[in-house]
């Protein structure tokens, strides 16, 4: 191998650089993600109605795809009603449906999105509910 030592040093530097996120976090606290769904709006609901448009598991996995499908249905096809798996219908609107219950964007959306470093651009245009400043900072 020509210039073998140069290649090996280069490789070592590369490996060291790539593993930086791991080596730097040795000994640091593990960040726990803790999204909250305990908004006053949800608390007020009778317990029988205290559920989302679809099951928790479905929403957790598919909410991003669902929001995109809702968006296309409303904007491109003029359809505004979503009929869920139980036959109940909802007005498809991030601002006017989702965030009416989940009025805690910082704890409901940002908590996980920040952890995963995903930056959906929803809030560049859509208006988020006003949150209690103290609540948001916590």
């Amino acid at each position: 191998m020509y210039d073998g030592w140069k290649i090996i040093i280069g490789l070592l530097v590369f490996v060291g650089f790539v593993t930086l996120p791991f080596t730097l976090s040795i000994g640091k606290d593990y960040i726990k993600v803790d999204p909250k769904i305990d908004t006053p709006e949800i608390q007020k609901l009778p317990s029988a109605e205290r559920k989302c448009v679809e099951s928790k598991e479905f929403m957790r996995k598919e909410h991003m795809k669902m929001l995109i499908d809702w968006r296309d249905a409303v904007v491109r096809e003029g359809k505004t009603l979503y009929v869920n798996s139980e036959g109940k219908s909802f007005n498809m609107s991030l601002q006017n449906t989702c965030m009416q219950c989940h009025s805690n964007k910082s704890k409901f959306c940002d908590e996980c999105h920040n952890y995963l470093a995903v930056k959906p651009y929803c809030w560049d245009c859509h208006l988020e509910p006003k949150e209690d400043k103290k609540e948001a900072r916590r």
Binding site: D69, W70, A73, E77, G78, K79, T80, L81, Y82, V83, N84, S89, M92
Partner: peptide, 8 residues
């Protein structure tokens, strides 16, 4: 699963 509102 998407529908128009009847009054549309």
């Amino acid at each position: 699963r998407y529908k128009k509102v009847p009054e549309a």
